[in-house]
Computed example of a mutant assay.
Amino acid sequence: MFIRRATLNDVEGLIDIRKKQLIDEGITADQGIDDQLRQFFMDKIESDDLIQWLAEEQGEIVATSAIVFYQFPPTYTNVSGVKGYITNIYTKPTHRGKGFGTKMLDLAVNEAKERGVHKLWLGASALGRSVYLRYGFEETDEWLELNVPK
C-alpha cells in the first residue's frame, strides 16, 4: 500500500471517490455535482485548506481521508479560531475491516496537530461512527443545523 497526498492532478479521482462515498451512505440525487466537486477540490487543494490523502494498491485508490481547515472567530478556548473538519474518509468495500479507516484518520489528526489545530469535528456516517468513537471522538450537543429553503 502506498499513501500519498492528493494534488490537483487527482481531482477527477477525488470526484469519483466522493460520489461513491455518498452512494454508500445512501445519499443520492438526480442532479450531478461533478462541477461543484471539481471547483471545491481545486480551490481547497490550491489554497492548502484541504489536505487529502490517498491510499493506493497497484495504482488503484482503496482508501481516502481529508481534513478541511476553516477560520472561525477566535475564542478563549481556541485563540487561533481555526478548526479542522474531518471528511472524505472512505474505504472501498473490499478493504473494509482491515484498519484502513483508522490509519487514514490518523493522517488527518496528525496534520491538525502539526498545524497547531486542536478543535476537530466531523459528520459521522453509520459506517464510520464506531471507528470515530473508538478513536476518541465524542458526540456533543454543540451544533444545531438549519436547512434553509431554496
Rank of each mutant, 00 (worst) to 15 (best):
D34C: 01
G116R: 07
A108S: 15
Y76I: 10
A63H: 02
N110P: 07
V11Q: 10
G99T: 14
G81P: 07
D10L: 08
P149E: 09
A63S: 14
D43I: 04
G32P: 06
L50H: 11
N147G: 12
L50V: 00
K98T: 06
E145A: 11
G84M: 07
K98C: 14
H118W: 05
P73R: 03
G123D: 14
F72A: 15
T140V: 05
L37F: 10
F2Q: 15
F40K: 06
L144K: 13
F2L: 11
D24I: 05
Q21G: 13
P93L: 03
G97V: 12
I61N: 09
A126V: 04
Y90K: 06
V131A: 11
I27N: 05
G13I: 00
Y85F: 09
G32W: 00
K19D: 06
A112T: 10
R134F: 07
I3W: 02
D34I: 04
V11G: 06
G26M: 01
Y76N: 13
E139F: 02
G123S: 07
H95I: 03
P73K: 00
D24K: 00
G136R: 03
V79Y: 05
I86M: 08
S65D: 06
G97T: 08
T75E: 03
E12K: 04
I27C: 01
G32C: 05
L14N: 09
D30P: 02
V117M: 03
K103C: 10
L8G: 13
D141F: 05
L122T: 02
R5I: 10
D35I: 04
L133Y: 05
A63K: 04
S125K: 04
I45P: 10
Y90H: 11
I3K: 11
M1C: 10
T91W: 06
L144S: 10
H118D: 08
A29F: 05
D10K: 09
I67R: 02
G136L: 02
N88W: 03
V117S: 05
Y90C: 11
I33R: 12
K119E: 08
I86F: 04
R115Q: 06
R5K: 15
Q58Y: 09
I89Y: 07
E139W: 03
L107S: 01
P93N: 00
V79R: 14
I33M: 14
G99I: 08
D35K: 13
R5W: 02
Q71W: 01
I27V: 12
T28H: 05
G123Y: 06
L122P: 05
